[in-house]
C-alpha cells in the first residue's frame, strides 16, 4: 500500500515536471521596427524590462504567444514617439501587439502560423524565423507589417516620411519555467 502511494507520487511528480518543463518564458526580448521612406528612416525599439514577459512557448504543443506593450517602444525623437502613440497606434485604445500561433519546423527554420493583432485588427500570418536550442531557446525572426491592413492611417502628406510597410525584428531568449 505504502509502496503504491510512493510510486503514485513519483509518477505524478515526474508527470508534472515533464509537462511544465515544456513551457518556456522569454527572459530577454528585443523587438524593433524600421520604416524606410524616401525622406527619413524611422527606428524604434522595445527592450523587455526585467520582471515582465513578452513571450511564452510550449514545446510540447508548439504553441507560441507574444504580447508586446505599444507604449514600450522608444524612439530617438520625442515628437515621433508622441505621434506614434497618439496619432497612429492609439496606444491608449489598443495597448498591445499580440501573436497567438503554433511553431513548426520547416527545414532549418521554423514557421509560426497564427493570428497577429495590432491596432485592434487581427490578421492570419505565417511568420518565418530561426530557433536555436541550447540551455536557452533563442528565437529570431523578422516580418513585414502593412500599415493599411491594420487600419493605421498615414496622412497623404507624410507618405514620404513613413513607409507603408514596416519591418519588424524580433529577438527573444527563452528560459524553462519551473
Amino acid at each position: 500500500m505504502v509502496l503504491q502511494i510512493i510510486k503514485y507520487i513519483l509518477v505524478l511528480g515526474a508527470l508534472i515536471t515533464s509537462l511544465s518543463a515544456q513551457v518556456w518564458l522569454a527572459d530577454t526580448c528585443n523587438i524593433s521596427f524600421f520604416s524606410e521612406a524616401p525622406l527619413e528612416n524611422i527606428e524604434a525599439q522595445s527592450i523587455m524590462p526585467k520582471g515582465s514577459t513578452y513571450a511564452a512557448f510550449n514545446q510540447a504543443t508548439g504553441k507560441l504567444n507574444f504580447k508586446i506593450p505599444i507604449l514600450s517602444f522608444r524612439f530617438e525623437n520625442g515628437l515621433m514617439e508622441e505621434h506614434f502613440n497618439e496619432n497612429y497606434m492609439e496606444s491608449e485604445k489598443y495597448p498591445y501587439a499580440t501573436f497567438k500561433g503554433k511553431l513548426s519546423h520547416e527545414g532549418d527554420s521554423v514557421v509560426a502560423e497564427g493570428v497577429f493583432q495590432v491596432h485592434g485588427v487581427t490578421k492570419s500570418r505565417k511568420l518565418k524565423g530561426v530557433l536555436v536550442k541550447g540551455e536557452k531557446l533563442i528565437l529570431k525572426g523578422s516580418f513585414m507589417v502593412i500599415t493599411k491592413e491594420h487600419k493605421i492611417k498615414i496622412p497623404k502628406l507624410l507618405v514620404k516620411n513613413i513607409a507603408e510597410e514596416i519591418k519588424v525584428d524580433i529577438y527573444c531568449e527563452f528560459i524553462q519555467k519551473i
Partner: peptide, 27 residues
Amino acid sequence: MATSFAQDDLDALLSDGGEEGQNISST
C-alpha cells in the same frame, strides 16, 4: 495545473507590461 499550460493559458503567463507598467511619454 500542468496540463493547463498545454492549452491557451500561455497568455496567463504573459505580463501586462511588468510590475512597473509602461512609462507615459510626451506629457
